[in-house]
Write a protein that binds this DNA or RNA. Structure first.
Length: 591
RNA sequence: GGUCCCGUAGCUCAGCUGGAUAGAGCAUCUGCCUUCUAAGCAGACGGUCGAACGUUCGAAUCGUUCCGGGAUCACCA
């Protein structure tokens, strides 16, 4: 049953009977300091009916009290009609939740979506910014699944290009055949080390060239290392055996490193694309666009599109020498993804520095008349900044993903052990718990903020385990499970339906929140915003903890009430678990 | 300079399809473990919702302008 829908209909019928009015009725939750559950604002009617708001409110209230099966009473404050619900309304609402047996996900909606995220460069290890991307991508995928979409998670690995060559050059020059094994460093970190080495040596070269009188721009172009890197890129594209062998070797190391990190943080993909396979795609579509007159050629043979009608500029889609630019590849890979999976929607989880790029890409796809253009969405998210400013890989001012996770696990261990609640756990169980808590704290920290907002991470202050955090919600779940274990030990089972009981306010609050869960799943999907789920889970956990402090489950002498509470808290635990699952966060049985 | 995003308590953030005295967490301070996990609960303190106009019965929420911060406007990706 749906109380809100019922009540809305009853109010509409009241308006019809009393004033011969038809209008859309929206309800809002009554403010805490007033009596009632739902509030109907009557101000909009005042002008139409030329009556004072209190009079209108009272008339509707009386009508509802007489004619609505869910309304028990009302009060009118100014223009606000506060409506109280019948006791048994709450009972039947809760019973209807129990009937669903915890299945609150939506049925398949027949629609499919491909979510591309993570998309790392193989020249450096993952950092905090990548974590935000990965967690967002994973969470949005889960949220879409819960809304009935068939979801494909894809990753496009940026495994070629000048930046990869930089690491390779530096390795050739300074590497001494070092390997991850010989250096005892994860492969992605080893590649990252040489990327930084390249930059250091390159800067030296620039400095000395400038000392010899070259301008900065000239020096940057003329530095021997840069020329070597460009030459290597040429060799790579020509399939030079030595270069390709080195490339394969180093990329192999990096993938081993990435896979270890992905495994640790619980990220996986249904499909991985490699840019080395796809970077030539898109040229044929440019050709098609030229034929259709959507693109045009300039004197130097370069190909452009004019997007001034869309409020954008002219954009190059193919260089004069016939080689691709970034957007060419993206046109090609979008087509490829559509050919491979034919999804109705396509989502890119990519930072907001590429907002313009995606505006252009989508505009081009529309002009090309691609059927999938309408379903394209750029999930743009803000940067994670440090107190010192932006993170920069080359300058080493990054918060490394592996390091951060390790630190979080250490903090989780410390925080947990000092409480001494899990002394009977085996070492394996402990390690599993610390990892669960550490990732819970980290993922929640990154997901609770609206994606498009940039956020600040202060390495000096470790991520909290108290207050509005992942572990707070995990703790709430563990607390409930503890009661349920106790109940089971006492031979009590959780009822499938509840009896005729009178709920306390804090209990109707919980029932109301539980009933609203599907609305939040929908909102989260509509907004592509895991933060909606995070805030909901926090709200639910917080309300449960108030309940916990106020009322007892196992010490309740009225067995009907106790059984209701068992069912209630079990629903809360299940909902927290499902909600956190959508964020990619596990909840422990004990902590 | 053009375009886009952000600006809410000391700090980090909710709220933004317009509604009653703007909510949390952290930090500071007060209470609460002889009863289901105190990673908790209850309370205090803390706000010109960046500013000004405008629309409205009513604006943190919508519009315009301005201020502050960020991104982008590459034949880089």
């Amino acid at each position: 049953m749906n109380i809100e829908k019922q009540l809305t209909e009853d109010i509409q019928s009241a308006l019809n009977h009393l004033f011969q009015e038809e209008m859309e009725v929206t309800l809002q939750p009554t403010r805490k300091d007033f009596e009632g559950t739902y509030t109907f604002v009557v101000f909009p009617l005042v002008k139409k009916l030329r009556k004072n708001p209190v009079e209108i409110g009272n008339a509707i209230g009386e009508y509802l009290k007489e004619n609505s099966s869910v309304v028990s009473g009302f009060n009118v404050v100014q223009g606000f009609l506060n409506i109280s619900l019948q006791e048994n309304t709450w009972n039947s609402l809760f019973n209807s939740l129990l009937e669903k047996k915890g299945d609150s996900d939506f049925d398949s909606n027949g629609s499919s979506v491909l979510v591309e995220f993570s998309s790392p460069n193989t020249n450096k290890p993952l950092h905090l910014g990548h974590l935000r991307n990965n967690f967002l991508g994973h969470s949005v995928s889960e949220i879409l699944k819960a809304n009935g979409y068939a979801v494909t998670k894809a990753c496009l690995v940026n495994d070629r290009g000048i930046h990869i060559c930089k690491s390779m050059i530096a390795y050739q020059l300074f590497g001494n055949d070092e390997t991850p094994e010989s250096a005892s460093i994860k492969g992605d970190h080893l590649a990252g080390k040489y990327y930084v080495e390249f930059d250091k040596a390159y800067k030296e070269e620039i400095k000395s060239l400038m000392a010899k009188g070259q301008s900065e721009d000239e020096a940057k172009k003329n530095a021997p290392l840069m020329k070597q890197a460009q030459q290597m890129l040429q060799q790579w594209e020509n399939g030079d055996e030595e270069v390709v062998t080195l490339w394969k070797k180093m990329n192999g190391w990096v993938y081993d490193g990435f896979n270890a990190t992905y495994k640790k943080i619980g990220i996986d993909f249904d499909k991985t694309y490699y840019e080395s396979d796809t970077y030539l795609l898109g040229k044929d579509i440019v050709e098609e666009g030229l034929e259709k007159g959507i693109f045009f050629k300039k004197e130097d043979n370069s190909v452009w599109i004019d997007l001034s009608e869309e409020g954008l500029d002219e954009k190059l889609v193919l260089r004069g020498d016939g080689t691709s630019v970034y957007i060419t590849q993206d046109i090609g890979t979008t087509e490829l993804k559509f050919k491979d999976f034919g999804t109705d929607k396509s989502v890119w989880v990519v930072g907001n520095e590429q907002d313009y790029h995606f505006q252009v890409l989508f505009a081009i796809l529309k002009k090309l008349g691609r059927s999938y253009a309408e379903g394209c969405y750029h999930l743009s998210y803000g940067m994670v900044d440090l107190p010192s400013g932006k993170m920069k890989s080359r300058e080493g001012t990054v918060v490394d993903a592996d390091d951060l996770v390790s630190e979080m696990i250490a903090t989780a261990r410390e925080t947990t052990e000092e409480r001494g609640k899990i002394d009977d756990f085996s070492e394996t169980e402990k390690d599993e718990l610390f990892r669960t808590l550490a990732l819970g704290a980290l993922k929640y920290f990154l997901l609770k903020v609206e994606p498009k907002k940039r956020m600040l991470f202060n390495p000096a202050e470790s991520i909290d385990f108290q207050g509005n955090t992942g572990p707070f919600i995990q703790y709430t779940h563990a607390r409930i499970k503890s009661i349920l274990r106790k109940a089971a030990a006492d031979g009590l089972s959780v009822p499938e339906q509840i009896g005729d009981i009178k709920m306390a306010e804090i209990e109707t609050d919980l029932v109301g929140l539980l009933a609203e869960y599907p609305n939040y799943i929908q909102k989260a999907a509509n907004d592509y915003a895991p933060s909606v789920i995070a805030n909901y889970c926090y709200d639910l956990a917080k309300t449960f903890n108030s309940f916990y402090a106020e009322l007892s489950v196992m010490n309740e002498s009225d067995s009907q009430l106790r059984d209701f509470r068992l069912a209630l808290i079990e629903q809360v635990a299940a909902t927290l678990k499902k909600g956190m699952r959508l964020l990619g966060i596990d909840v422990p049985e004990r902590m």
